[in-house]
Write a protein that binds this DNA or RNA. Structure first.
Lengths: 357, 357
DNA sequence: AGGCACGTTGTGTGCGCACACAACAACAAA
DNA sequence: TTTGTTGTTGTGTGCGCACACAACGTGCCT
């Protein structure tokens, strides 16, 4: 039933060794023999048995992962996806080494990148949050012929194998649609970037762009947009002060769009200010946000599928390096709209990944 | 590095054959030897190499799938998930045989069930849409020791391995939340069951129940609910007549909830009636619905993840039968909220399943 | 003619495991 | 004692493939 190398060899009148050389393009096969073997292969519809292949090669694959510290619950979820993929592919000889950068600056990131280059892994998974350092690293990987997969932050990088993550522009549009849907009268929508270094965060800019563009296209309600970058968001008192001032300045604010996972910080302020009347749209199913979502103090959360990002990141490396499969260069994950009624299912998130085969 | 049977045998002072007997619980091992082997196994943290195992057994697995005719695009998506899973596990010897029932009644369904029992497959995947026939079939499978996985319609069936699909009650609640969010004034919400046999459709009842209960809990807006079963929905003229009458009778209708994938039929009528002012919530990303969603004539679609249902159905059988893994009996899939801005990502749906390993 | 290099082809071994079968001991029945 | 039975244990083979290595033929140079 199943076609084996042996069958091809027999039908082509050669030995299995020759078929093997053809399959793996190892050369040293006479042109006419090669043609004959290839013909028989396609005739019989040969498909390599990956099981047997993996067993026979018995090779180890070192994958280095450069992401951020999983003390942040968003990155913990990404790491979870990576670890599940590792588990699912362990018997293919996949071994993962983690490197955690911190948010305080590119130094640690660059140092880890250097360590990885010394380690000479077979592939790299990276969240390219620091633009210049990431580009340098990708270049080095290319020179060493190390395939590299990017997650979480989209960037122009021709040397990378693929990007897996969200479409930031589109997520801004989505947030706009949700606010637009819930706001009836003419009003103001507040867009808040709670980020230390907004200049370096291209994805925040993309979100804002998508958000604004939605309202220029849909002006049946005449909603005004005010955006604000807040860099010192760690001190609640200061944050309250900033937000309070904004709400005074624009008394007709009806909705808030927080462009990253820090919506809970904003809502904390709204509680202090006794403002329960505002729509809030944010990102990411981290515990702090979920608490507010369940209490109806956040209306919508957009899920970036962090677990899936990690999982698919590794799986794409496996598909590329071990299984010789074609990899899609740009893989946008769904923008899940999460409300109280469906958050449980996204939170568990266990269903999609038991595909250990 | 990796612990093999050979290593365990050496450390326990027995042969690999004995270790094999312990691992597979084949018996005929002296009690003290068995204990010793088990101790060594846990000491060394032995994990069976599934790759090698699958290769060695070289067994074929026949899986029979009893679902509905894939000429319906919803069922075509379920079939797609099944086929992808088949492809991903083909080299484990998994072979799938499809049986398609039709919606006209349980006869074909029962006949297929009988054929499957004759075929004696190793496992069965079924959408138990006809209650009595399904129960009979599950009972027969149990007697023959054939594990059976249910998808799409939840039912009380202690003999089944697991259920994978939506939580209908919860999806009703979700629909209610979405309508509630978009309706501002006091108004009426219309719940429409477009189904030939509503009596036999437990999931429709569950959806209605969840829908109504949401509004009894959230009565800040005083929304009235009117529900209607429509059995002859195939004739557009007749359907228009029914819906037009309802809208006349309840002039303050602000939103519609169509409890299955037939929202497009309702919206077709609304177009004829020149009613563009109504919110519409429906189910399933079939082409007809997507067209209306993109044209902003359907506001929200709830995705039931049909591809995933099929895929996970097979994968759970593989996990259970081939890999001896524990299977979670109740696996609710996420209730994806789909709007114009994120429908592309759900429609492609290719991302989640390339996990061919 | 002898020696060597090189292109081409076939053979053998092992990956880790499952399973059939052989081997052996202990004991009971004839 | 012999024979058969049963419980227990070890050995050998093959799953399909990858890869090292041996073997062979050809042509070239000395």
């Amino acid at each position: 039933m199943t076609v084996r190398i042996k069958d091809i060899a027999a039908k082509a009148g050669v030995s299995t060794g020759t078929v093997d050389r053809v399959i793996h393009k190892r050369g040293n096969v006479r042109a006419d023999v090669q043609a004959k073997v290839e013909q028989v292969m396609s005739e019989l519809g040969y498909r390599r048995n990956l099981i047997a292949s993996a067993l026979a090669t018995n090779r180890k694959w070192k994958i280095a992962c450069l992401i951020f510290d999983p003390s942040d619950s968003y990155w913990r979820q990404i790491k979870e996806g990576i670890d599940r993929a590792q588990e699912a592919t362990a018997h293919y000889g996949v071994r993962i080494r983690h490197y955690f950068a911190d948010r305080f600056g590119p130094d640690m990131f660059a140092r880890h990148a250097a360590s990885i280059l010394e380690e000479r892994p077979d592939a790299v998974l990276m969240a390219p949050s620091f633009l210049r350092e990431s580009l340098d690293f990708i270049k080095s990987c290319n020179e060493l012929d190390i395939p590299i997969v990017l997650i979480n932050s989209e960037m122009e990088a021709p040397g990378a194998l693929c990007y897996i993550g969200q479409n930031s522009y589109q997520s801004g549009q989505l947030a706009a649609r949700l606010l637009h849907f819930g706001i009836n009268q003419e009003a103001t929508a507040l867009l808040l970037n709670l980020e230390a270094d907004t200049q370096n965060s291209q994805h925040l800019k993309d979100k804002e762009c998508g958000f604004r563009e939605y309202f220029t296209k849909n002006h049946d309600k005449e909603i005004k947009i005010v955006s604000e970058n807040i860099t010192n968001f760690d001190d609640p008192v200061q944050l309250c002060c900033i937000i309070g001032k904004l709400l005074n300045e624009y008394p007709d604010v009806a909705g808030l769009f927080v462009t990253n996972s820090r919506a809970f910080k904003v809502v904390g302020c709204l509680e202090r200010l006794n403002r329960n009347d505002l729509l809030v749209v944010g990102f990411d199913l981290i515990p702090e946000n979920l608490t507010y979502l369940r209490a109806n103090k956040i209306d919508f959360l957009i899920n970036q599928n962090p677990v899936m990002q990690g999982y698919l990141g590794i799986m794409n490396i496996v598909n590329h390096s071990l299984l010789d499969k074609e990899v899609v260069p740009l893989q946008y994950l769904p923008l899940d709209i999460v409300v109280t009624e469906n958050c449980d299912y996204y939170e568990q998130n266990s269903y999609a990944l038991p595909m250990v085969v």
